[in-house]
């Protein structure tokens, strides 16, 4: 029953022809699929991507385990709550990612990135070893540090271990190396002309504009040790992991820490005094606190001098405690 009575309609032929066309389409699809994943295509593969001795396949497991696609997109697929991750590594570089991921609740300031560049492996992957060269090579990292550094993000702190972080960076290195056929499109304008965008903070803009001598004079103004310490913890990215409150972010909060008795992982306990806090900043691995993992906090021995550490300890002391 497919045409007027008395008319030949060849319904059976038509149906067989449709199935034949479908078969041809299936063949085309299979053939195209087969040539899509050949080695000769030269697409990046995760097992061949190495980041600081870590392979990107492990990173793929981490990115799935944390369901990153539930907030972010990757190659454009996923949720639209956070930015796309595909080309992030190429834009911000490894040191920024290494500084960001352990304490994702806050945007890293330049100090935290600088600290990561002390690590030979990270500097090697970045291809530069000073923060100035890094900011030049990775303008997206510079933009993040200038505009967002030190402020809170909308991402929760996730319990990434040290190896999780490295594996994630390895995976993002792999996706950056992928040929995604021209997606995402490269913008042709400097985005910061957008009217509703959060403006550059005045301080960062002035620092960018001001001649270097003036900046030098500015730091010469005398300050109290506590106030200087408060500045240093922002500049060096300490506050990405430590809150000035009782809240434990990645590391313990500072409010009430000074003078309290801290239980260590080996079962002993110690009073958090000047000597202990100084040691924590210089050699964080020496005495690990119970409930925390070794290797999360980096050493600041190469970054801060004795006076600066004393000021930071003074600042922590000022936050109270016994």
């Amino acid at each position: 029953m497919s045409c007027k009575p008395g008319e030949l309609c060849y319904e059976g032929v038509k149906r067989r022809r449709a199935l034949a066309a479908l078969g041809l389409m299936a063949l085309i699809f299979v053939a195209l699929s087969a040539v899509s994943f050949l080695d000769s295509r030269g697409q990046a593969v995760p097992s061949a991507v190495d980041y600081a001795g870590v392979d990107a396949v492990a990173g793929k497991r981490v990115i799935q385990a944390y369901n990153c696609m539930g907030c972010h997109t990757i190659v454009g697929n996923g949720a639209y709550f956070g930015p796309d991750l595909t080309k992030l590594y190429a834009a911000v570089g490894p040191a920024w990612l290494e500084a960001f991921l352990p304490s994702a609740g806050a945007w890293p300031a330049s100090g935290a990135v600088k600290l990561k560049l002390q690590d030979k492996a990270i500097a090697g992957e970045a291809g530069v070893d000073t923060i100035e060269a890094y900011m030049e090579k990775y303008p997206a990292a510079a933009e993040r540090i200038d505009r967002r550094g030190g402020t809170a993000t909308h991402m929760p702190n996730l319990p990434f271990s040290r190896s999780d972080v490295q594996e994630l960076v390895a995976f993002l290195k792999y996706t950056s190396e992928m040929n995604t056929e021209g997606w995402p499109p490269v913008p042709k304008v400097d985005g910061l002309t957008f009217r509703e965008a959060t403006p550059m903070p005045v301080a960062a803009r002035q620092a960018a504009l001001a001649p270097t001598e003036e900046a030098g004079q500015a730091t010469a103004t005398p300050k109290s040790a506590t106030a200087h310490g408060a500045e240093l913890v922002e500049e060096n990215g300490c506050t990405a992991c430590h809150a000035p409150t009782k809240e434990n972010l990645v590391g313990p909060g500072w409010d009430g820490l000074y003078g309290s008795t801290v239980k260590l992982a080996d079962g002993s306990s110690v009073v958090a005094d000047d000597a202990y806090l100084t040691e924590k900043i210089l050699k964080p691995e020496a005495r690990v606190v119970e409930g925390y993992e070794a290797g999360v906090m980096p050493s600041f021995a190469e970054i801060l001098d004795a006076d600066q550490i004393a000021d930071i300890v003074a600042y922590i002391r000022s936050l109270g405690g016994n």
Binding site: S2, K14, A18, A21, L24, M25
Partner: peptide, 19 residues
């Protein structure tokens, strides 16, 4: 193939109305 699919579509739609 696209011409074929469009052609089939138009043909079957026409038959639908004839029915």
């Amino acid at each position: 193939l696209a011409v074929y699919v469009f052609y089939v579509f138009l043909g079957s739609l026409r038959t639908l109305f004839e029915h």
